[in-house]
Simulated scan of single mutants.
Amino acid sequence: MGTQQENGVLLEQETLLAKPPPLYQVVLLNDDFTPMEFVVIILQEYFHKDRTAATEIMLQVHHEGKGTCGVFPKDIASTKVELVLSHARSHGHPLQCVMEEV
């Protein structure tokens, strides 16, 4: 807190530090049915990854069971999860996409 004088009156200032909102990582989960190429396309279309980065994330999902697509504010992460799930379902794939607080 600081102090300040205005017209002979002593004023106290409170310094409030706003905590930034939590961020969420969007994660793709491995399954044995969704084609690798479809995962690469999802990463390019919804997360704006170039072909090389999308392929690296897809391989991480394949080998490690999951891979992070990006980190976003809650609303954006939630929207991306819903878009990916909707796209996968509309193409008959069981791809799972979740968000986790960072």
Rank of each mutant, 00 (worst) to 15 (best):
L83Y: 05
L95N: 07
L16S: 05
G65Q: 10
V9N: 13
E82P: 04
P94E: 01
G67C: 03
F72D: 02
L59G: 01
A77L: 09
T68H: 00
H93S: 03
L11H: 13
H62L: 06
E82S: 14
L95P: 13
H63V: 00
L23Q: 14
H93G: 05
M99H: 10
P35Y: 08
M99I: 00
I41R: 12
F33A: 08
Q25V: 07
L23N: 11
V81C: 13
K66R: 15
F72A: 02
F72P: 06
T68Y: 03
N7T: 00
A53M: 08
T3C: 04
C97I: 11
V102R: 14
S86G: 10
A77I: 10
E37W: 09
Q25H: 10
I57A: 07
M58L: 08
F47R: 15
D75L: 10
M36I: 00
K74V: 04
F72K: 05
Q60P: 01
A88V: 12
P20H: 12
Q96Y: 10
R89Y: 02
Y24A: 01
G65P: 04
V98M: 15
L59R: 12
P73G: 10
G2A: 06
S78G: 04
R89F: 05
K80T: 01
Y46I: 08
I76D: 00
V61C: 11
V84K: 09
Y24M: 10
V98Q: 15
R51F: 12
K74Q: 11
H91A: 09
T52G: 03
I42Q: 08
D75F: 07
F38W: 07
A53V: 08
S78F: 01
T3H: 05
G67W: 02
M58G: 09
I42T: 09
Y46W: 14
T3M: 00
G8M: 06
V27Q: 10
H63Y: 09
E37S: 06
V27G: 01
